[in-house]
Nucleic acid binder design. Structure first.
Lengths: 140, 140
DNA sequence: GACGATAATGCGAATGATTCGCATAATGTC
DNA sequence: GACATTATGCGAATCATTCGCATTATCGTC
Protein backbone atom coordinates (compact mmCIF):
# COMPACT_ATOMS: atom_id res chain seq x y z
CA UNK A 1 0.00 0.00 0.00
CA UNK A 2 2.80 2.41 0.82
CA UNK A 3 5.78 3.14 -1.34
CA UNK A 4 9.09 1.53 -0.68
CA UNK A 5 10.88 4.83 -0.84
CA UNK A 6 9.48 7.37 1.59
CA UNK A 7 9.34 10.92 0.34
CA UNK A 8 10.08 13.20 3.31
CA UNK A 9 13.27 11.37 4.12
CA UNK A 10 14.34 11.02 0.51
CA UNK A 11 13.87 14.72 0.08
CA UNK A 12 16.17 15.34 3.00
CA UNK A 13 18.94 13.06 1.76
CA UNK A 14 20.52 15.93 -0.13
CA UNK A 15 20.90 17.77 3.17
CA UNK A 16 22.88 14.99 4.72
CA UNK A 17 19.90 13.34 6.37
CA UNK A 18 20.11 9.57 6.10
CA UNK A 19 17.30 7.18 5.40
CA UNK A 20 17.52 4.49 8.04
CA UNK A 21 15.49 1.42 8.83
CA UNK A 22 14.18 2.94 12.05
CA UNK A 23 13.27 6.22 10.42
CA UNK A 24 11.29 4.41 7.79
CA UNK A 25 9.50 2.48 10.50
CA UNK A 26 8.59 5.68 12.35
CA UNK A 27 7.43 7.34 9.18
CA UNK A 28 5.35 4.30 8.38
CA UNK A 29 3.67 4.54 11.76
CA UNK A 30 2.81 8.18 11.16
CA UNK A 31 1.42 7.34 7.74
CA UNK A 32 -0.86 4.66 9.10
CA UNK A 33 -1.96 6.61 12.16
CA UNK A 34 -5.41 8.10 12.00
CA UNK A 35 -5.17 9.25 15.61
CA UNK A 36 -2.56 11.62 16.99
CA UNK A 37 -0.17 9.28 18.82
CA UNK A 38 2.32 10.24 21.50
CA UNK A 39 6.00 9.46 21.27
CA UNK A 40 5.60 6.42 23.49
CA UNK A 41 2.84 5.04 21.28
CA UNK A 42 4.83 5.75 18.14
CA UNK A 43 7.69 3.81 19.67
CA UNK A 44 5.47 0.83 20.40
CA UNK A 45 4.01 0.78 16.90
CA UNK A 46 7.36 1.29 15.22
CA UNK A 47 8.81 -1.61 17.18
CA UNK A 48 6.14 -3.87 15.75
CA UNK A 49 7.77 -3.27 12.40
CA UNK A 50 11.36 -2.97 13.61
CA UNK A 51 12.11 -4.02 17.19
CA UNK A 52 15.44 -2.24 17.14
CA UNK A 53 13.84 1.21 17.31
CA UNK A 54 14.69 3.00 20.52
CA UNK A 55 12.95 5.75 22.40
CA UNK A 56 15.75 8.21 21.74
CA UNK A 57 15.53 7.56 18.03
CA UNK A 58 11.81 8.22 18.01
CA UNK A 59 12.35 11.60 19.58
CA UNK A 60 15.30 12.40 17.37
CA UNK A 61 13.46 11.39 14.23
CA UNK A 62 10.38 13.35 15.16
CA UNK A 63 12.59 16.37 15.76
CA UNK A 64 14.23 15.98 12.37
CA UNK A 65 10.91 15.63 10.60
CA UNK A 66 9.36 18.46 12.52
CA UNK A 67 12.19 20.80 11.64
CA UNK A 68 11.77 19.75 8.02
CA UNK A 69 8.09 20.58 8.27
CA UNK A 70 6.94 17.02 7.66
CA UNK A 71 5.62 16.43 11.15
CA UNK A 72 3.42 18.56 13.38
CA UNK A 73 3.74 18.53 17.14
CA UNK A 74 0.60 19.13 19.21
CA UNK A 75 0.42 19.81 22.92
CA UNK A 76 -3.27 19.17 23.53
CA UNK A 77 -3.29 18.23 27.17
CA UNK A 78 -0.41 18.70 29.51
CA UNK A 79 0.86 15.14 29.32
CA UNK A 80 3.13 14.68 26.36
CA UNK A 81 3.15 15.87 22.78
CA UNK A 82 1.04 14.21 20.12
CA UNK A 83 2.25 13.99 16.55
CA UNK A 84 0.83 13.84 13.07
CA UNK A 85 2.14 13.90 9.55
CA UNK A 86 1.95 17.29 7.86
CA UNK A 87 1.02 15.84 4.53
CA UNK A 88 -2.47 17.17 4.24
CA UNK A 89 -4.05 20.58 4.27
CA UNK A 90 -3.65 22.70 7.37
CA UNK A 91 -6.34 22.10 9.96
CA UNK A 92 -7.19 22.80 13.56
CA UNK A 93 -8.34 20.41 16.28
CA UNK A 94 -11.38 19.73 18.38
CA UNK A 95 -10.54 17.53 21.34
CA UNK A 96 -13.25 15.43 22.95
CA UNK A 97 -12.88 15.98 26.69
CA UNK A 98 -14.54 12.65 27.47
CA UNK A 99 -12.69 10.33 25.13
CA UNK A 100 -9.59 12.27 24.15
CA UNK A 101 -10.54 11.77 20.50
CA UNK A 102 -9.32 14.43 18.14
CA UNK A 103 -11.51 15.79 15.36
CA UNK A 104 -9.89 17.87 12.67
CA UNK A 105 -11.60 20.85 11.12
CA UNK A 106 -10.80 23.84 9.05
CA UNK A 107 -12.30 27.30 8.68
CA UNK A 108 -10.99 29.68 6.09
CA UNK A 109 -13.07 32.40 7.66
CA UNK A 110 -11.49 32.03 11.07
CA UNK A 111 -8.06 32.08 9.54
CA UNK A 112 -8.89 35.23 7.67
CA UNK A 113 -10.10 36.85 10.86
CA UNK A 114 -6.91 35.82 12.60
CA UNK A 115 -4.83 37.49 9.95
CA UNK A 116 -6.90 40.64 10.19
CA UNK A 117 -6.60 40.77 13.95
CA UNK A 118 -2.86 40.26 13.80
CA UNK A 119 -2.53 42.94 11.16
CA UNK A 120 -4.39 45.38 13.37
CA UNK A 121 -1.97 44.63 16.16
CA UNK A 122 0.95 45.15 13.80
CA UNK A 123 1.91 41.54 13.35
CA UNK A 124 2.32 39.00 10.58
CA UNK A 125 1.21 35.55 11.66
CA UNK A 126 3.82 32.87 11.26
CA UNK A 127 1.59 30.10 12.47
CA UNK A 128 -1.25 29.57 14.89
CA UNK A 129 -2.88 27.04 17.10
CA UNK A 130 -6.59 26.74 17.57
CA UNK A 131 -7.93 24.02 19.78
CA UNK A 132 -11.52 23.54 20.83
CA UNK A 133 -12.19 21.38 23.87
CA UNK A 134 -15.69 20.07 24.20
CA UNK A 135 -18.12 17.25 24.71
CA UNK A 136 -20.59 15.58 22.41
CA UNK A 137 -23.85 17.42 22.30
CA UNK A 138 -26.43 15.66 24.45
CA UNK A 139 -30.15 15.42 23.86
CA UNK A 140 -31.43 17.45 20.88
CA UNK B 1 -3.15 50.04 45.85
CA UNK B 2 -4.37 46.55 46.48
CA UNK B 3 -6.78 45.43 49.13
CA UNK B 4 -5.58 43.83 52.30
CA UNK B 5 -8.03 41.00 51.97
CA UNK B 6 -7.68 39.15 48.72
CA UNK B 7 -10.89 38.09 47.08
CA UNK B 8 -10.27 34.74 45.35
CA UNK B 9 -8.86 33.21 48.50
CA UNK B 10 -11.47 34.73 50.75
CA UNK B 11 -14.16 33.36 48.52
CA UNK B 12 -12.69 29.91 48.90
CA UNK B 13 -12.47 30.01 52.69
CA UNK B 14 -15.96 28.61 52.96
CA UNK B 15 -14.77 25.53 51.10
CA UNK B 16 -12.03 24.81 53.58
CA UNK B 17 -9.34 26.65 51.65
CA UNK B 18 -7.10 28.61 53.99
CA UNK B 19 -5.66 32.04 53.42
CA UNK B 20 -1.97 31.82 54.12
CA UNK B 21 0.89 34.27 53.98
CA UNK B 22 2.47 32.51 51.02
CA UNK B 23 -0.78 32.31 49.11
CA UNK B 24 -1.31 36.00 49.54
CA UNK B 25 2.20 36.63 48.29
CA UNK B 26 1.61 34.52 45.19
CA UNK B 27 -1.70 36.18 44.51
CA UNK B 28 -0.04 39.55 44.89
CA UNK B 29 2.53 38.58 42.29
CA UNK B 30 -0.18 37.59 39.85
CA UNK B 31 -2.01 40.85 40.48
CA UNK B 32 1.03 42.93 39.75
CA UNK B 33 2.17 40.91 36.76
CA UNK B 34 1.49 42.43 33.39
CA UNK B 35 3.41 39.65 31.67
CA UNK B 36 2.56 35.95 31.83
CA UNK B 37 5.17 34.61 34.26
CA UNK B 38 6.25 31.01 34.65
CA UNK B 39 6.12 29.17 37.95
CA UNK B 40 9.81 29.77 38.54
CA UNK B 41 9.40 33.51 37.99
CA UNK B 42 6.36 33.61 40.23
CA UNK B 43 8.40 31.92 42.93
CA UNK B 44 11.17 34.49 42.63
CA UNK B 45 8.78 37.42 42.80
CA UNK B 46 6.77 35.95 45.64
CA UNK B 47 9.94 35.43 47.65
CA UNK B 48 10.69 39.11 47.37
CA UNK B 49 7.60 39.63 49.48
CA UNK B 50 7.84 36.50 51.59
CA UNK B 51 11.12 34.53 51.47
CA UNK B 52 9.47 31.50 53.03
CA UNK B 53 7.54 30.65 49.86
CA UNK B 54 8.68 27.37 48.38
CA UNK B 55 8.51 25.99 44.87
CA UNK B 56 6.05 23.30 45.86
CA UNK B 57 3.73 25.87 47.36
CA UNK B 58 3.77 27.94 44.20
CA UNK B 59 2.65 24.94 42.19
CA UNK B 60 0.09 23.89 44.76
CA UNK B 61 -1.35 27.36 45.04
CA UNK B 62 -1.53 27.80 41.30
CA UNK B 63 -3.33 24.47 41.10
CA UNK B 64 -5.82 25.54 43.74
CA UNK B 65 -6.49 28.85 42.06
CA UNK B 66 -6.71 27.28 38.66
CA UNK B 67 -9.26 24.76 39.84
CA UNK B 68 -11.24 27.59 41.36
CA UNK B 69 -11.13 29.39 38.05
CA UNK B 70 -9.10 32.33 39.34
CA UNK B 71 -5.95 31.51 37.44
CA UNK B 72 -5.40 30.54 33.82
CA UNK B 73 -2.62 28.23 32.74
CA UNK B 74 -1.08 28.78 29.31
CA UNK B 75 1.29 26.48 27.47
CA UNK B 76 2.61 28.81 24.82
CA UNK B 77 5.96 27.28 24.04
CA UNK B 78 7.04 23.87 25.11
CA UNK B 79 9.06 25.03 28.09
CA UNK B 80 6.85 25.42 31.12
CA UNK B 81 3.41 26.83 31.76
CA UNK B 82 2.78 30.55 32.00
CA UNK B 83 0.10 31.88 34.32
CA UNK B 84 -2.22 34.84 34.54
CA UNK B 85 -5.06 35.96 36.76
CA UNK B 86 -8.50 35.23 35.35
CA UNK B 87 -9.95 38.45 36.63
CA UNK B 88 -10.63 40.15 33.35
CA UNK B 89 -12.65 39.31 30.27
CA UNK B 90 -11.75 36.20 28.32
CA UNK B 91 -9.12 36.79 25.69
CA UNK B 92 -6.74 34.95 23.41
CA UNK B 93 -3.03 35.46 22.86
CA UNK B 94 -0.66 36.62 20.18
CA UNK B 95 2.91 35.62 20.94
CA UNK B 96 5.77 37.61 19.47
CA UNK B 97 8.20 35.04 18.11
CA UNK B 98 11.12 37.44 18.40
CA UNK B 99 10.65 38.77 21.89
CA UNK B 100 8.33 36.27 23.54
CA UNK B 101 6.01 39.15 24.40
CA UNK B 102 2.36 38.26 24.73
CA UNK B 103 -0.37 40.48 23.32
CA UNK B 104 -3.93 39.81 24.37
CA UNK B 105 -6.82 40.17 21.99
CA UNK B 106 -10.41 39.21 21.68
CA UNK B 107 -12.77 38.52 18.81
CA UNK B 108 -16.41 37.82 19.43
CA UNK B 109 -16.76 36.85 15.79
CA UNK B 110 -14.11 34.17 15.98
CA UNK B 111 -15.70 32.76 19.10
CA UNK B 112 -19.04 32.65 17.41
CA UNK B 113 -17.55 30.81 14.47
CA UNK B 114 -15.91 28.35 16.83
CA UNK B 115 -19.23 27.57 18.43
CA UNK B 116 -20.84 27.09 15.04
CA UNK B 117 -18.09 24.78 13.85
CA UNK B 118 -18.30 22.73 17.01
CA UNK B 119 -22.06 22.50 16.73
CA UNK B 120 -21.76 21.20 13.19
CA UNK B 121 -19.43 18.51 14.44
CA UNK B 122 -21.87 17.64 17.20
CA UNK B 123 -19.99 19.18 20.09
CA UNK B 124 -20.50 21.79 22.77
CA UNK B 125 -17.33 23.75 23.44
CA UNK B 126 -16.19 23.73 27.03
CA UNK B 127 -13.24 25.96 26.44
CA UNK B 128 -10.78 26.77 23.71
CA UNK B 129 -7.31 27.94 23.07
CA UNK B 130 -6.34 30.25 20.25
CA UNK B 131 -2.76 31.35 19.94
CA UNK B 132 -1.26 33.33 17.12
CA UNK B 133 2.49 33.24 16.70
CA UNK B 134 3.98 36.02 14.63
CA UNK B 135 6.46 38.81 14.18
CA UNK B 136 6.07 42.56 14.04
CA UNK B 137 5.14 43.73 10.59
CA UNK B 138 8.19 45.14 8.87
CA UNK B 139 8.31 48.08 6.50
CA UNK B 140 5.39 50.42 5.72
C1' DG C 1 -7.01 34.47 73.75
C1' DA C 2 -6.14 29.44 73.90
C1' DC C 3 -7.63 24.68 71.78
C1' DG C 4 -7.87 21.39 68.29
C1' DA C 5 -9.11 19.42 63.97
C1' DT C 6 -7.34 19.70 59.69
C1' DA C 7 -5.33 22.08 55.80
C1' DA C 8 -0.85 23.98 54.15
C1' DT C 9 4.07 24.27 54.27
C1' DG C 10 9.04 23.18 53.24
C1' DC C 11 12.05 19.89 52.23
C1' DG C 12 13.87 16.57 49.36
C1' DA C 13 12.85 12.61 46.79
C1' DA C 14 10.05 10.82 42.87
C1' DT C 15 7.97 11.28 38.48
C1' DG C 16 7.27 11.68 33.48
C1' DA C 17 8.53 13.41 29.25
C1' DT C 18 12.30 14.55 26.69
C1' DT C 19 17.32 15.19 25.70
C1' DC C 20 22.32 14.09 25.92
C1' DG C 21 26.95 11.73 25.88
C1' DC C 22 29.31 8.35 24.09
C1' DA C 23 30.96 4.21 22.01
C1' DT C 24 29.27 1.39 18.16
C1' DA C 25 26.78 0.60 13.84
C1' DA C 26 25.00 1.94 9.49
C1' DT C 27 24.42 5.04 5.36
C1' DG C 28 25.69 7.11 1.10
C1' DT C 29 29.69 8.59 -1.60
C1' DC C 30 33.67 7.94 -4.42
C1' DG D 1 34.37 -1.98 -1.17
C1' DA D 2 36.55 1.78 1.83
C1' DC D 3 35.64 6.17 4.34
C1' DA D 4 33.88 10.07 6.30
C1' DT D 5 30.13 11.10 8.74
C1' DT D 6 25.52 10.64 10.46
C1' DA D 7 22.46 7.58 13.35
C1' DT D 8 21.71 4.37 16.74
C1' DG D 9 20.99 2.26 21.43
C1' DC D 10 21.95 2.53 25.92
C1' DG D 11 21.76 4.65 30.16
C1' DA D 12 22.48 8.86 32.52
C1' DA D 13 21.02 13.69 32.80
C1' DT D 14 17.52 17.50 32.55
C1' DC D 15 13.49 20.09 33.20
C1' DA D 16 9.17 21.10 34.91
C1' DT D 17 6.10 19.41 38.03
C1' DT D 18 4.26 16.42 41.77
C1' DC D 19 4.49 13.68 46.08
C1' DG D 20 5.39 11.91 50.87
C1' DC D 21 5.88 13.23 55.22
C1' DA D 22 6.89 15.40 59.44
C1' DT D 23 6.02 20.10 61.05
C1' DT D 24 3.55 24.44 61.18
C1' DA D 25 -0.29 27.45 60.68
C1' DT D 26 -5.16 28.68 60.00
C1' DC D 27 -9.68 29.38 61.70
C1' DG D 28 -14.04 28.03 63.85
C1' DT D 29 -15.09 27.23 68.65
C1' DC D 30 -15.04 27.85 73.56
Amino acid sequence: MSNLIDDPLSDLRAEGVRVTRQRLAILHVLREASDHPRAEEILARARAQDPSVSQATVYRTLAVLEKAGSVLRNEFDGSGARFELADRQHHDHLIDLDTGAVVEFRSALIEQLQAEIAAELGYDIEWHRLELYGRKTTGV
